[in-house]
Amino acid sequence: MLETMGKVEEIIALNDNDKERLIQILLELQKEFRWLSREVLERVGKKLDVPINHIYSLVTFYSHFSLVPKGRHVMSVCVGTACHVRGAERLLDSVASAVKCKPGCTTSDEKFSLDTVNCLGACALGPVMVADGEYMSNPTPDEISRKVESCE
């Protein structure tokens, strides 16, 4: 915990304790810890003199912030329009049943998180998903389960 708070203070200091940089600070913290805990948010609020209701309005407004720990493996399914017309919903269903968790959720053993993203800018590959950084173009249910099984 001490170490965590040290990092929080460091990141805030690197941003000149500037209230205007609140979103930038939270993005850096999200990147550092992969989620934002209540303790971290409370510290940020105290340090920058931003009330807790403002902090929570902000972190629950922007989709990039996660307020729960993310899984060790992240599956992102693109649900952009181009992928949608090429069957993204079907792909999402398949991935959800393979990792046994709903879109936007993390499995209780914190092994998998399943996210949807609005456009990966890889429309030619649609429907496309990214499994731990690896792009998969229109995978079959079989390919998905093989990928899922390969995750530790």
Binding site: V79, G80, T81, A82, H84, N118, C119, G121, C123
Partner: peptide, 12 residues
């Protein structure tokens, strides 16, 4: 902040 799903020219 190219947000339209299915548009990526600004990224390009």
């Amino acid at each position: 902040d190219e947000g339209d799903p299915g548009a990526y020219m600004d990224r390009g």
